[in-house]
C-alpha cells in the first residue's frame, strides 16, 4: 500500500499540470465562496439567513464544492488517460505490478483527492462561519461534511470510470463536461421527473449524491410549489453508496480483464 502511494506520488511530484489544477481548486475556492456568502448576507437581509447560518453554510459549501469538483474530476481523468496515452499502464504491469495493484493505486488517488475536496469544503464552511455566524453553531448539520466526502467520492469515482473506459483524455473530459457542467444531467433530471413522475430523475448517478447535500431549504419550497413531499435523505445515501460501489466495481472489472 505504501509502495503504491509512493509510486503515484513520484508520478505527480513534478507534474506541473497536476499542481496547477490542484492549486486552482484548493486556493480560490474557499475565498470566493466566503465572498459570495458575504454578498448574500448583505443583500438578502432576513432571507439571507436561510443560507448564511449553520447548517445551511455546510449545504451551501457542499453545493459550491459539487461545481468545483469538475476540476478534480478533470485531474482524475487526466491521470488515468495519461497512463493509457503514454502506455505506462502497460509498463507498470510489465515492471511487476499486478492489475489489481495498478487499480488500487488509482483508487487510492481518488480517495485522497476526495478527502482533499472535503477538507477544502470544510475550510470554506469554517471561514464563512467565522465571518457570518457563531462557530458554536458549527456542529449543526456537521454530518453534511461526511456527505460532502461521499459526494466527492461519487464524482471522482465516476471520473475514474469514464477515464478507464473512454481512454482518450479529450473525449473523456468532453463527456464528463457535457453531463455535469453543460447541463446534460440537469436536462435528463428535468425530463425524467416530468415524464416518469415522482423523483426518478433525482436518482441519476451524480444527482443522487447532490441530493444528499441539497440546496438549503429547497425541500420546503418545493413542497409548497409542487405539493410533493421530499424523499427521506437515507434513500439518497443508499443510492450514492450504490453508485460509488458500481463505478469502482466496473472500473476494477475493466482493469482486470482488458487488453492494455
Amino acid at each position: 500500500m505504501f509502495n503504491l502511494l509512493y509510486v503515484e506520488w513520484l508520478k505527480v511530484k513534478k507534474y506541473k499540470a497536476f499542481w496547477i489544477i490542484l492549486g486552482i481548486f484548493a486556493v480560490p475556492f474557499p475565498i470566493i465562496f466566503m465572498e459570495i456568502m458575504k454578498k448574500i448576507d448583505e443583500k438578502a437581509g432576513v432571507v439571507g439567513v436561510m443560507f448564511t447560518a449553520f447548517p445551511s453554510i455546510w449545504q451551501m459549501s457542499g453545493f459550491w464544492s459539487s461545481i468545483n469538483l469538475v476540476l478534480l474530476a478533470m485531474l482524475v481523468i487526466l491521470m488515468i488517460t495519461n497512463e493509457n496515452t503514454y502506455r505506462t499502464i502497460r509498463q507498470n504491469i510489465i515492471d511487476g505490478w499486478s492489475r489489481e495493484q495498478f487499480f488500487t493505486a488509482k483508487l487510492l488517488q481518488v480517495i485522497m483527492l476526495s478527502v482533499l475536496a472535503t477538507i477544502v469544503a470544510t475550510i470554506a464552511g469554517i471561514i464563512t462561519g467565522v465571518a457570518l455566524d457563531d462557530m458554536h453553531n458549527a456542529s449543526k448539520g456537521s454530518y453534511f461534511i461526511f456527505y460532502i466526502f461521499l459526494q466527492s467520492l461519487c464524482y471522482l469515482s465516476a471520473a475514474l470510470f469514464i477515464g478507464l473506459y473512454v481512454k482518450r483524455a479529450a473525449l473523456a473530459i468532453a463527456i464528463y463536461f457535457m453531463y455535469v457542467v453543460i447541463g446534460g444531467e440537469f436536462l435528463l433530471q428535468f425530463v425524467m421527473n416530468k415524464y416518469l413522475g415522482g423523483y426518478v430523475g433525482n436518482f441519476l448517478p451524480l444527482q443522487a449524491s447532490d441530493e444528499l447535500v441539497p440546496f438549503p431549504n429547497m425541500d420546503k419550497l418545493s413542497k409548497e410549489v409542487t405539493g410533493k413531499a421530499p424523499l427521506d435523505p437515507s434513500i439518497y445515501l443508499i443510492a450514492t453508496l450504490v453508485y460509488i460501489g458500481l463505478f469502482i466495481f466496473l472500473s476494477y472489472r475493466k482493469m482486470k480483464k482488458a487488453d492494455l
Binding site: 509510486v7 513520484l10 513534478k14 507534474y15 495519461n82 503514454y86 505506462t88 502497460r90 507498470n92
Partner: peptide, 19 residues
C-alpha cells in the same frame, strides 16, 4: 513507454520503485 513530462532519471525512479 515513459512519462513524457519526466526526465530519464525521474522515469527510472518510477520503474525502480515499482520493481
Amino acid at each position: 513507454n515513459f512519462y513524457h513530462y519526466y526526465t530519464a532519471v525521474q522515469n527510472l525512479e518510477i520503474t525502480a520503485a515499482i520493481k
